[in-house]
Design a protein around this nucleic acid. Structure first.
Lengths: 267, 267
DNA sequence: TAGTGGTCTAGACCACCAT
DNA sequence: TGGTGGTCTAGACCACTAT
């Protein structure tokens, strides 16, 4: 690196800034390959590890995609899949006959796929039991679903249902839930979703999630803990969605409630 | 590293897993210091850079906090500040006399502070103009606020207000908005917040945000684009909040609306 | 097989922090 | 001042991808 400045930024940072400029100015377009680590190193007169550190900075900011054996590529910005309260509405189910995920993905001209990978009966974990108003030892049905767009994994969700609701229904034992999917089957058991509570946060994926969701470096996951409340304001299901934050967004439109009514509707 | 296995995981991954186990089993408690890079390297018979790579993996997962010149420390899990629709309610304003941020932070026995760092008149950026139903050249007031808990920066927000609303009101020129703060002043101008739209996503912080929000390594930010709609379902303000995801969460409770009504309320 | 990224080593010097 | 993390070098071998 041309080290004209005394005590300037580290060479890896300078090189990263240089490359970042080239990318943001469009001199390298999305999909283009960057020079290899070895080329960058020799051209900028730094060690290969230094060029490597610069590329890591760009990857950590989500600007480039590092592919073993192929090279480093400028990342394509992706349009987000957006999910909000309407995904649970009966009208949407009736209109499209599609699950909310399928409807959203189809609208973006991509091909949706949902795999139910496991259905079990287990004791409720503490946080789920709390939200469902159960004891920790109470049995629940646990359903795990993986969601794909064009065979790219974009999110997964784990749904917890009190066993007394799931028992005897496809909810407790069948991967194929039939027309209208999950919430149609809840209606069959007398639970109509009228209010939802969604708690949202974000974090970096665990190594396992990173692998299974194919999350690129430098991309966090959104974690949505969703609680469905029936017509009597009683919780009847909890789903924890984990979504790639670069491919998903949430879009909530709602009335401004006053705290008193809100507290009531929560119990 | 004891390389009993042929072609096993990289030594840095093995060391990271070992340390991760020690932390999650509680043998190292939050706040405890890990052995130094040099000690780890010699004890596990690897180069210092390898021990360093292992620590970086832990930092990227948010498990440890690396402090230059001091050491590497097990991170304290923090309770989240939670924000939902009730933060905009009139009842909360009247009850507590506090802004929603102040109320939430106070409830967690921490000391809130909000700094308004700039108020300007500027042309509306494209995404803001779209949400406010303005043209891109239309003037808006831009207010920038920084939010602290115990002098720790936790989020910042940029609020955009059509100039014809802000003009002549403290909204357009005064850092101190008086009792009831922002939404009380909107009510003075005839805009009562009745519906909100919040679009949520997450990403890694930019280097600048990382510095100004003091975001630890391996922690993403939540980005909430908030649109306030008045009693006539017209947008009158947009605020983009950027929050440390390790310190903030969102908590929305809302009725399940059907798509038809929703579309109407959006325009 | 050649070129790419992934990892590792051994050693060096700098910047920061506590004593 | 001594110990910590931050960065860098020069070279090596491995794993993956394309030809």
């Amino acid at each position: 690196m041309d080290d004209d400045q005394q005590r300037s930024e580290p060479a890896s940072h300078l090189l990263a800034e240089l490359l970042r400029g080239i990318i943001t100015r469009g001199e390298l377009a999305p999909g283009d390959r960057l020079p290899s680590e070895r080329v960058l190193a020799s051209e900028h007169r730094v060690a290969r590890n230094t060029a490597r550190a610069a590329i890591r900075l760009l990857a950590d900011q989500g600007l480039v995609d590092v592919q073993h054996g192929r090279g480093v590529f400028v990342r394509h910005p992706r349009k987000l899949l957006r999910f909000g309260a309407e995904r649970y509405s009966r009208a949407l189910r009736d209109e499209t006959g599609l699950s909310p995920f399928r409807a959203e993905v189809t609208q973006q001209h991509r091909t949706p796929r949902v795999d139910c990978t496991s259905i079990q009966q287990t004791p409720a974990p503490a946080d789920v039991a709390e939200r469902l108003g159960l004891n920790q030892s109470d049995p629940v049905a646990r359903r795990e679903n993986w969601y794909y767009a064009d065979d790219e994994p974009v999110q997964y969700g784990v749904t917890w249902i009190p066993w007394n609701i799931a028992e005897g229904s496809p909810l407790g034992n069948s991967a194929d839930l039939g027309p209208g999917s999950l919430y149609a089957r809840f209606e069959d058991t007398g639970h109509s979703i009228t209010t939802i509570r969604e708690e949202v946060t974000a974090r970096m994926p665990s190594p396992d999630e990173s692998r299974r969701l194919q999350v690129p470096d430098g991309v966090p996951v959104l974690v949505v803990t969703h609680t469905g409340l029936n017509q009597h304001h009683r919780p009847f299901e909890v789903t924890v969605f984990t979504m790639r934050a670069d491919l998903n967004g949430l879009d909530y439109t709602m009335p401004v409630t006053d705290p008193q009514r809100l507290k009531e509707s929560r119990l």
